[in-house]
Design a protein around this nucleic acid. Structure first.
Lengths: 348, 348
DNA sequence: TTGTACGCGTTATCAA
DNA sequence: TTGATAACGCGTACAA
């Protein structure tokens, strides 16, 4: 086992100074062709590579970005990561991940851990708990220390930073308009409680679409799930509630769900009740993941372009990291990624 | 914007030396209670935290582990990551990810990038290309530099390191035995080409189960897909081939597929041909992901316990990192995670 | 053309 | 009880 070789060792072996080695490796014209040749040959032989940590310390720059997400076993978030990683690598950065597991305290701990020199900036999506508690001190503290943050998907306007979001409102509105255009007269909404910003916006999009088409929204047709529960429990409750919804509103002929799972559950319950999708009920979900694509019938969804969000977030962050800090007032931008309606078999 | 505060700044402010500050913060009994109190108050006020990079340089230890996987938008791999992250965080480590995107060269580049001081060890699953080319020099070089590696899932015996795998052979055998016990007489296999070790082992498990039950394997019933193709193309080809398989072998009453997608496609084609699952054909897949759970009918699968694999891999790696290096011969272990057959609606 | 000295932030050792 | 110094590995301004 040969330890990684350092400049110092090369210098000692070749009986020159460390700085000579350093310069020779950079083809500095201060150094004689002879020495350069000798040093480079030796370095190549021993496969010399500069130590990243030493460089980071010296340059006060790690070339690493941190990404904090609530959950990784989730098609949307893993696609975002892929996008981040793609751009980051292309631009010479590594990506370090932290999972908050939807917990406020884990989010804080993870951020503090990484903020102490490990990374140059954050890309993050807030945990549900943070959204509920509305405690954003850790974000503000991090930024006040000069560490840039780019938020995506789950954002709040209280925090001043770059953001990448999808147009949840418009995406939802388009989806519901599609159902209306497809002759749905009684459209149910399956959504989350309002503290998750995206759920709220999608709900508003639903309402707006109804409003513009002069359809009076009915409280009976709106199902707001509490998604802080344990997954399994949630799923069971969900199906029971949807069944209840369908049974007590037999006229329902369209469903808009704010995520994939809710949409799938709606289709499952419909099937159980002997209703055909899309003939009796048409269904549209949000978030274009694997489930939608491979469901039976395959699910029409609002695609969020998760990878593109990740790419954009990474570009924004790295731009900010690499931009010279003019003391002038900082400008933050919010990039809105357009959604697409991916039509499949669950709508006509 | 206040930059992160350092020992040096605290020392200057309080008019003491850097080392006094350092010791005071550690409650060293060399320092007077008075000074300790003063320093700690000041440090707390300015929220002092030691710089990780400086510590890494000093200790020649980063407390970070690197994970290299072929793809992150994949339920299995993201679950492994979750497991790794869970254990790593618990034991005081960060996780940095690298995606090979199934490419040999990206795998090499990513590893070199991280091996230069950024991390203390690797957890990785090989890219398909690496498996095909059988070029493992980057793994061996990394290890010869004293950087430990733990491989999971896609491994080869040529490389001497710790490994975490599932018993692909036995998992497959159990699955096929289940089909046989369920009275299937003609069981098809949908698998990948042999260079991916897991595909090969699962195929062997299938053959062994047949053998032990005195069923003669038929080449006609075995479909080997080339999974190096583009995803969309692959999917189309896959379904076409399965359809062909079913049409030319009407007696098929059971299918074992080496992954979720193949199994799902089999069910889809069966439905298209008017065959009922599980009444006409029973289907079992490998890899227990979201698709299996939410498919219609839900899919019986061999569960790999991906998260557990990640946890185990992380424990193995950190153990190795933290163990004092007795010069004695190194011992490597291969941990086999048992599989479970998760029975759902696609079998009787 | 080469070498010395310094600094990045920290800790450990030894001197005062 | 406190402080100076060296070291981790690197790059660079400056001196030789």
């Amino acid at each position: 086992m040969k330890r990684k070789i350092t400049l110092k060792q090369i210098a000692r072996e070749l009986d020159v100074s460390i700085s000579t080695v350093s310069k020779a490796l950079k083809n500095s014209k201060e150094i004689s062709a002879d020495t350069i040749q000798k040093v480079q040959a030796f370095a190549k032989l021993y496969n010399y590579r500069p130590n990243n940590i030493a460089l980071s310390l010296k340059n006060r720059k790690t070339n690493t970005i941190g990404i904090i997400i609530p959950e990784i076993v989730h098609h949307f978030f893993s696609k975002v990561i892929r996008g981040v990683e793609l751009v980051a690598n292309k631009r010479g950065y590594n990506v370090i991940i932290g999972l908050s597991n939807e917990s406020f305290s884990k989010e804080v701990i993870n951020m503090e851990m990484l903020a102490n020199g490990s990374i140059d900036g954050f890309i993050l999506s807030m945990s549900k708990e943070t959204l509920q508690q509305q405690d954003y001190h850790h974000f503000n503290e991090t930024m006040s220390q000069g560490m840039p943050i780019v938020m995506f998907d789950r954002v709040v306007s209280d925090i001043k930073c770059d953001k990448v979001i999808v147009d949840d409102f418009k995406g939802a509105k388009n989806a519901v308009e599609k159902l209306i255009a497809n002759k749905c007269k009684s459209i149910a909404l399956i959504t989350t409680k309002d503290y998750v910003s995206v759920g709220k916006l999608r709900t508003q999009g639903y309402l707006e679409a109804l409003h513009e088409n002069r359809i009076t929204p009915e409280a009976d047709l709106i199902l707001k799930m509490d998604d802080t529960l344990d997954y399994e429990v949630h799923l069971e409750t969900l199906e029971a509630e949807i069944e209840q919804l369908f049974k007590s509103n037999k006229k329902i002929d369209g469903v808009f769900a704010v995520n994939e799972l809710y949409a799938l559950s709606a289709m499952k319950v419909a099937r159980k009740l002997g209703l055909s999708v899309p003939n009796d009920i048409q269904v549209i979900g949000f978030t274009d993941g694997v489930l939608s694509k491979h469901a039976t019938p395959s699910l029409t969804t609002v695609s969020q372009h998760a990878q593109q969000m990740g790419e954009k977030a990474a570009d924004l962050l790295i731009d900010k990291i690499e931009t010279e800090f003019d003391t002038e007032e900082e400008q933050f931008q919010t990039v809105v990624i357009p959604t697409d309606l991916v039509e499949r078999e669950s709508t006509k």
